[in-house]
Amino acid sequence: MPHFDVNVLVRLREGTLDPAAEALEDGLSGLGFEGVRTLGIDRRIRLRIEAADARAALASADRMARELLANPVLEDYEISVAGGERA
């Protein structure tokens, strides 16, 4: 069975208060960087999935994201085959 490397990018949903991003802005501002906003500190989960083809690997990663990797109350996710196709 071939395998495919899949990236699952998990990020806070738009409008969710992100204290970590605010802290990062404070840190950057302390170093003298001005005029910069943190848009997000995302989490990238890299998976190697055995599947018949890339489409099946993406479908499987999508189920994993819905069932565990992202919490829909807080987060959105995006899935892509490493170096290629997006879901």
Binding site: P19, A20, E22, N71, V73
Partner: peptide
């Protein structure tokens, strides 16, 4: 319980971290 869907909502990082 929230993660299991047995209670509504979610708990996340405190406002002041």
């Amino acid at each position: 319980l929230c993660e299991a869907g047995m209670l509504p909502g979610a708990l996340t990082v405190n406002r002041r971290r």
